[in-house]
């Protein structure tokens, strides 16, 4: 056990596997939950991504996003399908936005602000991917206002859970 812990690279790989599995499980669990709108999800798996950015590194969090997408794809019946690509684009954008927010605005933003910016980036990237996929004429941007509103409670929920997780594992 001591040898395992001392091997930091192996430790990181194991942690990446465990956290990605948790993120994929959260994504699968929230899929059948009743929603206010058909496409509206709280994005609970972003808790693990935010935790990964804060406790490990941005690259580690990006790894969680990619492995989560690969794991949840077959379980949700959408491996290598457009919805998976859209979800992956959103996840990568959220991880990048939260990393940037932490690096550039970390001295004045709290976990809530960082998470909300991640949620906004996630929604923007998903809309952008749909727009590119469906053709530039398709008016997906009419949902942008609504999606910005949705990002606020969703970002606060993710931040609250991640905050508790970080606090308990300090």
């Amino acid at each position: 056990m001591r040898r395992f812990i001392a091997n930091s690279r192996l430790n990181d790989v194991v942690m990446l596997g465990v956290l990605s599995a948790v993120a994929a499980s959260l994504q699968m669990l929230e899929a059948p939950l009743p929603r206010l709108l058909p496409w509206l999800k709280p994005g609970l798996s972003n808790v693990v991504v935010l935790f990964g950015i804060v406790r490990f590194s941005p690259m580690f969090a990006l790894g969680i996003v990619i492995v989560r997408s690969i794991l949840s794809g077959p379980a949700l019946g959408m491996l290598f399908s457009p919805p998976q690509l859209i979800g992956l684009a959103g996840g990568v954008a959220a991880a990048l936005a939260m990393t940037l927010a932490m690096r550039l605005g970390g001295s004045f933003l709290g976990l809530a602000g960082i998470s909300i910016l991640g949620a906004v980036a996630n929604n923007l990237a998903q809309l952008g991917t749909v727009s590119i996929w469906a053709g530039s004429l398709f008016p997906v941007w009419f949902q942008l206002g609504l999606m910005i509103f949705v990002s606020i409670p969703s970002g606060l929920l993710v931040a609250g859970t991640a905050h508790e997780l970080i606090r308990r594992t300090l």
Binding site: V54, G105, L111, A112, L170
Partner: peptide, 9 residues
């Protein structure tokens, strides 16, 4: 970040 959840910003 573990301590600071919500700020004025």
């Amino acid at each position: 970040l573990g301590r600071r959840f919500f700020t004025f910003a």
